[in-house]
Design a protein around this nucleic acid. Structure first.
Length: 552
RNA sequence: GCUGGGUUCGUAUAACGGUUAGUACUCAAGAUUCUCAAUCUUGCAAUAGGAGUUCGAUUCUCCUACCCAGUACCA
């Protein structure tokens, strides 16, 4: 009998979801959608001590931004985790803290079957044993070798166990890991794996103190109850897989046990180790999908706020550890769903490459229509003090600069001179030469040259500006006065013809003009600029540049 | 330490035992242009090391090295 594919993403609300978590959610989503199945969200908040307010909302919002829409568990209309069962959400509640009553009976069931036992050792006692063992160069493990020397229902008289069970609350139910058994497991990504149970410990399944299950119990019970068919999760769970296999067996659920796939971790761009929040802050790239402000007020960057398109972010993430088997790199979500396959998921951890992330964004920006980009650029302009920009004018600007940008925000640094004159740069907070800043801040790349930080006209001036060139530039612009041109190309021809007819040096005159028009040594074609700002404005900028230089 | 997982250019990856080991990003050079971008062309650059199996190993086996994870009443 073929079961309907049902996968779940089960985050713990202990903080913002980071990009590795988003990737796990994405792979789950792609897998489910390809099989025409369900993608379920379940909140694993069984650790009362590590709960972080706002984390759950953050996770849902982040997935929504990425276009990873759950079929079950969260009502996307309200953005809330579903608490009461309905046709669409039959297994509610989807928050484990609200499923508290469910777990105890399963834990007790294992005790009754002799597959688990009550343990009365205090956390302090166990910590002390661990410390003592460590001091002696050994490792303390609660397992088949030590369980008979500890305080539990296996060693205590029945009456004492009964008394402790009713009179105290500091006890747990532990899984009685079978001895010397080779667990044979299969992983969709890694293939066959075997492990001997002697290397495993008796994990706590349920805690009387807060009457909550631990991850292992809650996870198996809920996956079973929610009819999960594939568990796709991070590699950090691989060492727990034999325990989970044993739990399915102990419960007698092996016939419906899900298949497992353990995803490798995302690694930091340089050096070794997994990607962490600190790396992002240090190297200037986000590790979170959305901006996150911690309780202590420290903020972390988010891809959304940093100007990434969600499609680009998702596309980049999908290809970090998976490939379609051919050379394609650009995928819509729909195409990812079609192309995804677990066999093509990489076993090794993938180092995240911020440069490639920017490249993806640039590609997606180029794919967007000029209309759409204009809509996105207008608010940016407004933010920079250009509130009354004419839409048609902005549209023209966008069409000229879209291929030069990685982010919509770049449009401003690239083309601020098309909205304000160099004489206004200071007032608008524009750095002279900023238009050169095509490349983002990457500490490994030497992309900035001195001209960037040089004050307006200081350095560029020496190259182009002198009385002769200034006069020639002015006369060239004057020659355009009163004439109309079909387009910038026609104007360009006129300008070049004029300069040639005077036998002036083309490059020098053009660059002198550019300096006056843009405040820097780089920028769009001269005719493009003049046809946008107009001849009178061009003359005014020429005058201003001249004044600046004479007063030096 | 122990247990498990992993290892192809700097990075992400391709190569159902047989290729001059391919592609993309980055970087460099050239072309183009009024500058800068963009674009186009070219280039730099890898199978961790060692055994074995085989006519032939990136690919299969073993050993070593290195990396990662787990080793909680956290997930």
């Amino acid at each position: 009998m073929e079961r309907r594919t049902r996968v779940r993403f089960a985050p713990s609300p202990t903080g913002p979801l980071h990009m590795g978590g988003v990737r796990t959610a994405l792979y789950n989503y792609l897998y489910a959608k390809q099989k025409g199945g369900d993608f379920i969200i379940r909140i694993e908040d069984t650790d009362s001590h590590r709960f972080v307010p706002g984390a759950e909302q953050y996770i849902i919002e982040a997935l929504g931004w990425c276009g990873i829409i759950p079929d079950e568990g969260v009502d996307m209309a309200t953005g809330q985790v579903v608490e009461t069962p309905s046709a669409r959400h039959p297994h509610a509640p989807y928050r484990q803290s609200q499923r508290k009553p469910i777990y105890r009976k399963y834990a007790e069931q294992l005790v009754a079957a002799g597959k688990a036992y009550y343990a009365f050792d205090s956390a302090e006692d166990l910590d002390a044993r661990r410390a003592a063992a460590e001091a002696a160069g050994e490792t303390f493990i609660y397992n088949q070798k030590t369980r008979l020397q500890l305080r539990n229902s296996l060693t205590l008289p029945a009456e004492e166990t009964e008394r402790l069970l009713t009179e105290t609350t500091d006890w747990t139910i532990r899984f009685k890991m079978p001895e010397n058994t080779v667990v044979k497991m299969d992983d969709l990504i890694r293939g066959h794996i075997e492990m001997n149970t002697n290397t495993l410990d008796d994990k706590v399944l349920w805690k009387r103190a807060d009457e909550l299950p631990t991850y292992h119990l809650a996870n198996i019970v809920d996956d079973h109850l929610m009819e999960i068919t594939e568990v796709i999760r991070g590699e950090e769970w691989l060492p727990s897989l034999p325990l989970h296999y044993q739990l399915y067996e102990a419960f007698g659920w092996t016939d419906t046990m899900p298949r497992f796939a353990h995803l490798s971790l995302l690694l930091k761009p340089v050096g070794n180790g997994k990607l962490s929040k600190r790396d992002g802050d240090k190297m200037g790239f986000p590790v979170f999908p959305l901006r996150w402000v911690a309780a202590d007020g420290t903020a972390s960057h988010g891809y959304r706020e940093d100007g990434y398109f969600p499609e680009a972010f998702v596309n980049m993430l999908a290809l970090l550890g998976w490939n379609p088997g051919d050379d394609r790199e650009l995928f819509t979500m729909e195409e990812l769903i079609q192309a995804f396959s677990m066999e093509k998921v990489q076993k090794a951890g993938a180092k995240f490459n911020p440069e490639k992330a920017r490249w993806f964004n640039k590609e997606y920006l180029r794919q967007k229509s000029e209309e759409e980009l204009t809509d996105l650029f207008l608010p940016v302009l407004s933010k920079h003090g250009i509130a009354d920009a004419d839409r048609d004018y902005v549209l023209k600007v966008v069409s000229l600069i879209k291929e030069r940008a990685t982010f919509v925000e770049d449009f401003w640094t690239i083309a601020s001179y098309l909205f304000i004159a160099p004489s206004q740069f200071e007032a608008f907070g524009v750095k002279a030469g900023a238009a050169v800043a095509q490349k983002p801040a990457d500490p490994r790349a030497k992309v900035y040259d001195d001209s960037l930080t040089a004050p307006f006209l200081a350095k560029d001036t020496e190259k182009f500006w002198n009385a002769e060139n200034a006069a020639a530039a002015r006369e060239t612009v004057l020659s355009l006065q009163g004439k109309s041109f079909a387009d910038a190309h026609a104007m360009s021809e006129a300008i070049e013809d004029y300069i040639r007819s005077k036998e002036w040096p083309m490059g020098k005159v053009m660059n002198t003009l550019r300096l006056a028009l843009t405040g820097s040594a780089s920028g769009l074609g001269i005719a493009d600029i003049i046809s946008l700002v107009g001849v009178p404005e061009a003359l005014a900028r020429l005058d201003f540049a001249g004044q600046q230089l004479e007063s030096r």
